[in-house]
Design a protein around this nucleic acid. Structure first.
Lengths: 215, 215
DNA sequence: GCTGCAAAGCTACGCCCATTAGCCAACCGG
DNA sequence: CCGGTTGGCTAATGGGCGTAGCTTTGCAGC
């Protein structure tokens, strides 16, 4: 009865393979049975190395979030302003294309209550901080920074989710569409900074009173 | 042995209740067992009214997509331009807030191959057409309309997905953030129309050559 | 009112998955 | 070489989907 020589890390590595092999649905379809099959081991044996399927998923998600953050960080180092924002956007989407399954793992929000999700919460916060750092360079007032971060995240994430999910069915150039979205975000953040820095500017694109829509 | 008096429509209705009861994860957690429990019936009995769990999910998704489309349509009737786009955005997000579980059902892209998904594909196309109709009013050239639609969809969907998934953890006003995103999209679409309608305009916000980023 | 049949339940079963319990063999430190 | 830890295993439970086949209800038509 030879041993498979597994370990915690080896199991996680195999889980990542399963996720990567499964395309955009790889994470959703991650199963202990598949990992065990890849390891050449009976499914219950995995419990010697991993607490549960939920634990394994958490760990995969953590890695994915950290990878996105790392890609975003290294893409924006040494850049500022719209240059940085464009590099950030590209790295974000490029990661999703290269690892659609792993990107799917970043879509599950960590449970704000569950202590087991603490690491994931922190990792997610770090990825948001990278966006925040980039946007900080636009000179936004503090109260607008959070809005800009959310708009950018929504744009990036929404586009990638729709793209990976097959939501863009026309054959038209998707890269071009992303470039247009990115232009909107760059212009939007720039205008947002200009508006609140110089509130009297007459020809600001964003001269609309957003405060009126508060609940 | 009294009869429960089920029917196809009754089962779908109960499935919608299960989805609605389950919060944002209601659709993902939809199960025949839960529907059967709500109906007061053994699970296999449901097969007299429904082909499979996949069929039931499809039907729920179809209803959800049509409801979003209907909300968007009625919100934009009689409006045009940025007024229409703002109303569209509000109706989209309002639907997601009112029916988070059902909104989750709209996130699964229909399989482009599967003939069973044909109705869902058509319904999804209709919802995109509503956005297209609204954006058409901005006078975009045809080649840009698809890009604008995608940007708007990405913004709406991304924001709502992040919001429902608990992705916005700061307590800052989320309505305000959505208003800012909406401003960016309105300004972005306006500028996109201005850019390609009058290419020589000097002060256009979007004077960047997006064609340079084609793959 | 009776008869008969289709429809709508049911139970029993098979399969897949996660997880627990308990066994046994392999490796490693002394 | 010996013993304990550790990493496999099988068996079994529970839950979910789905199929097969039985039973009973309730209605249509006489």
């Amino acid at each position: 009865m030879p041993r498979a020589g597994l370990s915690h890390d080896a199991v996680v590595r195999l889980a990542l393979e399963v996720v990567d092999d499964g395309g955009a649905r790889g994470y959703a379809d991650l199963t202990l049975a598949k990992v065990a099959a890849k390891a050449g081991v009976a499914a219950p044996s995995l419990y010697k190395h991993v607490g549960s399927l939920a634990d394994l998923r958490r760990e995969v998600a953590l890695i994915a979030v950290r990878e996105v953050t790392a890609a975003a960080t290294s893409a924006t180092v040494g850049r500022a302003g719209s240059d940085a924002l464009r590099a950030l956007a590209t790295s974000w989407r490029t990661y999703a294309h290269a690892h659609p399954g792993r990107y799917g793992a970043t879509q599950v929000g960590p449970d704000p209550e569950d202590p087991a999700d603490a690491g994931l919460r922190e990792a997610a916060a770090e990825s948001v901080q990278v966006i925040g750092a980039v946007l900080h360079g636009f000179g936004l007032p503090d109260e607008r920074l959070i809005d800009a971060i959310r708009a950018v995240r929504a744009g990036f994430h929404g586009f990638v989710v729709l793209e990976l999910g097959g939501g863009f069915r026309m054959r038209e150039d998707v890269d071009q569409s992303f470039a247009v979205l990115l232009d909107m975000l760059v212009a939007g953040v720039t205008a947002l900074a200009a508006r609140d820095t110089a509130p009297a500017a007459p020809d600001t694109v964003l001269d609309h009173d957003t405060a009126g829509s508060h609940r």
